[in-house]
Amino acid sequence: MIAPIDEFKKELTDIAMFAPSTVDNYVACMTAFFDYARRQLRIDPVFAKGKHILDWIGQVKNSGVSKSRMEHHRSSLRLFFALMVKLNIVVKNPADKLPQIRRTRTSERNRPVAPAMVFKLLASIDRSGWRGIRDHLIIAMLWALGLRVSELTALKVVHFEPDHDGDNRIGLLRVRGKNKKQRALFVVDNLYDELVDHLEHLWSPVQKNVPIFPIDTGTAISNDRVRKMIKERCRTAGITQRITPHVLRHCFATDMYHAGVPLDDIQTMLGHDHKAETAVYVHVSDKLKKQALEQIGLQGGLSWA
Rank of each mutant, 00 (worst) to 15 (best):
T13M: 11
M17A: 06
A19D: 10
S21E: 15
M30D: 01
M30Y: 06
F34T: 04
A37P: 09
R38F: 12
R42K: 13
V46Q: 09
H52A: 03
D55E: 15
K61W: 11
K61R: 12
S63E: 06
S75P: 12
L77C: 07
F80H: 04
M84T: 00
V85S: 05
L98D: 07
R102N: 01
T106A: 01
E108F: 08
N110S: 01
N110C: 02
P112V: 03
G129N: 13
W130T: 11
H136T: 10
H136L: 08
A140D: 08
L142N: 13
L142M: 10
A144S: 14
R148Q: 09
S150D: 09
S150N: 11
L152T: 08
L155D: 13
F160H: 08
P162F: 01
D163H: 02
D165C: 01
G166Q: 10
K180R: 14
V196A: 00
D197Y: 09
H201N: 14
W203K: 04
V206I: 03
V206D: 04
V210G: 01
V210F: 06
P211Y: 07
P211R: 14
N223W: 04
R225V: 11
R233L: 11
T236W: 05
I239W: 05
R242E: 02
I243H: 00
R249S: 03
L263W: 00
D265A: 12
Q267C: 11
Q267Y: 02
A279Y: 05
Y281G: 01
V284K: 00
K289I: 02
K290E: 12
K290Y: 05
Q291H: 02
G297S: 15
G297L: 14
